[in-house]
Simulated assay, not measured.
Amino acid sequence: MQERQLDERGRVALPPTFRHLLGDLCYLFSGEDGCVSIRSVEAFNDEATDLIARVKRGEASRDRQRAFAASASEASIDKQGRVTISPELRSYAGIAPQSAVIVLGNLHHIEIWEPAAYGVHCTNGTDELTGDTVATGAKQ
């Protein structure tokens, strides 16, 4: 996890340790829990294929598929390791222009978070790991 600064064009520099996962092209899209998700082209295609299969089996809605597809955009990583986050994705994630963001490696993908939102999810996750209060307020 690293804090980074969004520039005036909506670009953020990805940490060098994450760039090798993506290659020169990647996909940005609306992630779960209000973040911006970044996947390699191959990982994005796998996720899209899986979602299509889940819709066919009735495990996910066509509305979810539409929202996923509509939010996705192919992005190039420039020579400085930056990707541009569209105004729509920034709005979805609550990221203000020229603000700080959290760039997080999440096992098989990268997430970009508005710092306060990430703090809430990080606290909830830590509480679950330690057996403390979960998001619903109940003890495990």
Rank of each mutant, 00 (worst) to 15 (best):
V120A: 07
C35W: 00
S40W: 06
D127T: 14
T84D: 01
I102M: 01
Y92T: 06
G58R: 11
D46I: 05
D33G: 01
I38S: 03
L14D: 11
W113M: 07
V55Q: 09
L22Q: 05
L14E: 06
K79R: 14
V83C: 06
H109I: 11
R9F: 13
F18P: 09
G125N: 03
R90W: 11
L28K: 11
G119Y: 15
A43Y: 07
N106E: 05
P87W: 09
D24Q: 13
A13D: 06
T123R: 13
A67F: 06
E47Y: 02
P87H: 07
E47G: 13
G34Y: 10
V36R: 04
R54L: 08
G34T: 07
A96V: 04
D33L: 09
T84H: 03
A96L: 03
K79Y: 07
T49A: 14
S61M: 04
V36D: 04
G58T: 02
D50I: 08
I38W: 01
L51W: 02
V55W: 10
G125V: 12
R4H: 04
A72K: 02
L21M: 11
R9V: 09
T123C: 06
P15S: 02
R54F: 09
D78E: 07
S71Q: 02
H121I: 11
A43W: 10
L14H: 10
E114M: 08
L6W: 05
P115I: 15
T126H: 01
E59L: 14
R62H: 13
G105N: 00
I95E: 04
Y92N: 10
V55R: 09
T17C: 03
R4S: 04
E3H: 06
R90M: 09
L25K: 13
H20M: 01
Y27N: 01
K79L: 08
S91D: 02
V120K: 15
P97V: 15
R66C: 00
D63Q: 12
H20N: 06
R11K: 10
F29A: 08
A13Y: 03
S76D: 04
A100Q: 14
S30Y: 00
A116G: 00
T49M: 08
G105P: 11
H109R: 15
N106L: 08
I110Q: 07
S76I: 02
D46A: 12
R90I: 12
V120H: 13
E59Q: 13
I112Y: 14
T123N: 09
L14G: 13
V103T: 05
G10R: 02
I77F: 02
